[in-house]
Amino acid sequence: MGFKLLSKLLVYLTASIMAIASPLAFSVDSSGEYPTVSEIPVGEVRLYQIADGVWSHIATQSFDGAVYPSNGLIVRDGDELLLIDTAWGAKNTAALLAEIEKQIGLPVTRAVSTHFHDDRVGGVDVLRAAGVATYASPSTRRLAEVEGNEIPTHSLEGLSSSGDAVRFGPVELFYPGAAHSTDNLIVYVPSASVLYGGCAIYELSRTSAGNVADADLAEWPTSIERIQQHYPEAQFVIPGHGLPGGLDLLKHTTNVVKAHTNRSVVE
């Protein structure tokens, strides 16, 4: 069995187990497998329904001669939608809004960016022009300005110390501490036991640490421990890039980060 097929099978099995364990909360999309990078042309966006009122959005972007996937989250909030992270750029984010209108038909009224990198804030200006209120932590807003990236308009308070959590509509926002970046936030959907790890969490097929220019490698494993301790009931975990899975993604990420750190020390 090929690795790609095995990865998709694991996603399907995880979703099936969740649907059985929580039949009222989960209505997993039966329309197909989780979209992969090879299936999404740059400039297009796919939506994948995880649970009743919960979707991931998947886009792709060219970077350094390669094409990478990027995940975000959409959560229903009454007759409105909360968006977590842009679709990595203005063109993708405009396509995301169009796809949401086509498939869901509810307005996106608020959006949260989970850290300051372009795959999370690139497209904020498109959201703002569409009347979406954009939010991020003060740290993310400051770092985005320093980096020359787009800056969300509103500040999220109460997320300055490791372990801080605040309720934001249908989700809980959690600051686990520094990891992929010093400002990275985690998003949890309690009604569906869905954990969105953003770039602080890796997919299972990833074996290298990737972009760690703004990471705190020493603190990252401790931050992941905080996530595990705060959300032990999480059933569906979405990484910032690639295929979702279960809580095993947290341990896998820790292993990859520690291996990278150990290699760096040896070198």
Rank of each mutant, 00 (worst) to 15 (best):
M1S: 03
L6H: 10
L6I: 09
K8I: 05
L9T: 06
L10V: 08
L10G: 08
T14L: 10
A15F: 13
A19G: 08
A21H: 15
A21V: 11
A21K: 13
P23A: 14
L24Y: 14
F26H: 15
S27N: 05
V28K: 12
S30M: 15
G32T: 05
E33A: 13
Y34D: 14
T36P: 06
I40C: 14
P41D: 11
V42Y: 11
E44S: 13
Y48L: 09
I50G: 02
D52H: 05
V54L: 06
W55K: 00
I58K: 07
I58H: 15
I58V: 09
A59V: 12
Q61H: 06
F63C: 05
D64T: 13
P69S: 14
N71C: 02
G72K: 02
I74P: 01
D77I: 04
G78M: 09
D79P: 14
E80S: 08
L82T: 11
L83D: 02
I84K: 02
D85Y: 00
A87G: 10
A87H: 00
A87N: 03
A87R: 00
W88L: 00
W88H: 00
W88E: 00
W88I: 00
G89F: 02
A90I: 13
E99Q: 09
K102N: 15
G105W: 07
L106E: 14
P107Y: 15
R110A: 15
T114M: 03
H115R: 01
F116S: 11
D118K: 07
G122S: 08
V124C: 08
V124Y: 03
D125K: 15
L127S: 01
A130T: 10
A136Y: 03
S137L: 11
P138E: 15
A144T: 12
E145P: 04
V146P: 09
E147C: 15
E147A: 14
G148S: 13
N149T: 14
P152C: 02
P152Y: 01
L159D: 02
S160F: 15
S162F: 15
V166T: 08
F168D: 01
E172Q: 14
F174Y: 15
Y175F: 10
Y175P: 02
Y175I: 01
P176G: 04
P176C: 01
P176L: 02
A178Q: 14
T182C: 05
D183I: 02
I186C: 03
Y188Q: 01
V189E: 07
V189N: 00
P190N: 05
S191M: 10
S193K: 11
V194E: 00
L195Y: 00
C199F: 01
A200W: 02
L204D: 14
S205P: 11
R206D: 10
T207E: 11
T207I: 08
T207P: 07
S208M: 12
S208R: 11
A209V: 12
V212H: 06
D216N: 08
L217T: 07
A218R: 10
W220Q: 01
P221H: 07
T222Y: 07
T222M: 07
S223C: 03
I224P: 00
E225H: 15
E225A: 12
E225G: 12
R226C: 03
R226E: 11
I227G: 02
Q228L: 15
Q229K: 14
H230W: 13
Y231M: 05
Y231W: 13
Y231I: 15
E233N: 07
A234F: 05
A234W: 02
A234L: 12
G240T: 01
G240L: 03
H241N: 00
H241M: 00
G245L: 01
G245C: 02
T253F: 00
T253C: 01
T254I: 08
K258E: 14
K258S: 13
K258Y: 15
H260T: 06
H260E: 12
N262G: 09
N262D: 13
